[in-house]
Simulated scan of single mutants.
Amino acid sequence: MPKSSNHLALARQWEMLKSIPSRAPGITASDLVDRLAEAGFPVSKRTVERDLVDLSLQFGIGCNEAPKPYGWYWLPGKAHDFSSVELTDAISLNLAEHTLRRMLPAQFLRGLEPRFALAKKKLSALEAHPMVRLRDKLRYVPTSLEQRPPSIQSKLFEAIQQALVEERQIDVRYAPFQGKAKDLRLHPLSLVLRGQVPYLLATTFDYEQVLLYAVHRFESVTVTTQAIRVPDGYSVDAELAAGRMQFGGGKRVQLKARLSDELATHVAECPLSEDQQVSYKKAHWELSATVRDSWELHFWILSQGAGIEVLRPVALRRMVMDRLAEALGNYNKQNSK
């Protein structure tokens, strides 16, 4: 038998031993077939029955022979602790490890390290299994221009995570974009990863307003002994639903625009809102959608170039016209040199 087949048989039998209950009436061969299939080991009932007989010669498992169907269980005092990870869990852990390492506090990761190691070891031993090869077939690609993550001091990030876990206030020195560094007392509430950039949602000093702070702009972070104060009704999900991470005031507007054929196809497949409508009128595709008036919306519209003409709101149309005119002016300056 090839080495890879031996590994698969051993992994299958390991899953079986983990599924056997510690007392009678036990588990039937048919039930084990179903559990093995869920774990990624589709085999016949006859194969399971042969495995059970072989395993009973090496481990303290017995068979309840009456009445049928026969049930298998651990004999008294013979049950084992099979600390392992299932194949499907190993694949999920392996795929999620990168993101988890970026988000979870160090003390949480320490608890997961043995699981990460077990997952890698199991996948390495079972590399011939078709489910293991799934990890080489799944990838995430951002829809925007790919950028490298900002540089973040690991000690500062760990201090923020610690404060979130312990719900403690932090003294920080924060350097906003194009601004002077400030000394602040923050009440950290939530950590949100937006693309490659982590942001801290927090209140400042004794104010109730929740603000956003880019983690890479912290120059120093000190965890205090004082507990945070959470604003009444605060919820990170409510903040996200209100468009907090779109960098806007949260105001909803009715966007109306003319679209190119390509952009009309794209937004028809990936709508901007639940109430979006795309229709063909007067030789043009027209879009109508309720969206949040935010920096993210402005950025998206400007990134479409000639593929979109904003009709409403009028203020948004004027803003886009001014930004495009400014951009055209920059190109004209270069051409005149």
Rank of each mutant, 00 (worst) to 15 (best):
D136R: 14
A79W: 04
F299L: 03
G233M: 03
A11V: 11
L10N: 08
L118C: 10
K120H: 15
K251F: 12
K122P: 03
A264S: 01
T225Y: 06
K121I: 09
S294H: 11
A315S: 05
H216P: 00
I27R: 02
Y174T: 07
A202C: 08
I308D: 01
S279Y: 06
F59W: 11
V291E: 13
L32Y: 03
T143R: 01
L302H: 03
P198T: 13
E127H: 10
K256V: 15
N332E: 11
E269H: 15
W285G: 01
G195M: 15
Q254S: 06
M319Q: 09
T47I: 12
Y207Q: 15
V310K: 00
N64I: 09
E49L: 14
A90L: 05
L118R: 13
L191R: 04
A306K: 01
A96G: 02
Q304N: 03
G248V: 12
L156R: 05
R168E: 01
C63N: 09
S154K: 06
L95G: 00
E219G: 00
Y174R: 03
K45S: 11
L109C: 02
W300V: 03
G249I: 04
S92F: 09
E97K: 05
E146L: 12
L57N: 10
K78W: 09
N335S: 07
R110E: 05
V172I: 04
D136I: 14
S124E: 07
V230G: 00
V310Y: 12
D293Q: 09
S22N: 11
P69W: 07
P313F: 11
D322Y: 09
S220K: 10
V141C: 09
L95S: 00
E166R: 12
P114Y: 07
S154F: 04
V267L: 14
K18P: 02
L17M: 08
L272P: 12
G179V: 11
Q178M: 11
H298P: 01
A24M: 04
N332H: 11
T225S: 13
G77P: 01
L316D: 08
P130H: 13
S19Y: 07
Q161K: 00
I301S: 04
P105A: 07
P150L: 12
D183R: 03
S144D: 12
L189K: 00
W74L: 02
P105S: 05
R217A: 04
M103D: 14
G250T: 08
A11C: 10
G62Y: 04
G26T: 12
M245P: 02
A96Q: 03
K122C: 03
L287H: 08
K256T: 13
Q147H: 06
I228K: 00
V267K: 00
G60D: 04
L297M: 06
P149K: 01
H98K: 07
A327E: 08
E219R: 00
R194G: 05
V215S: 09
L109F: 04
W295M: 07
V141Y: 09
I160V: 14
K282G: 00
F177M: 04
Q196V: 14
S294A: 12
A306C: 01
L259P: 05
H284R: 01
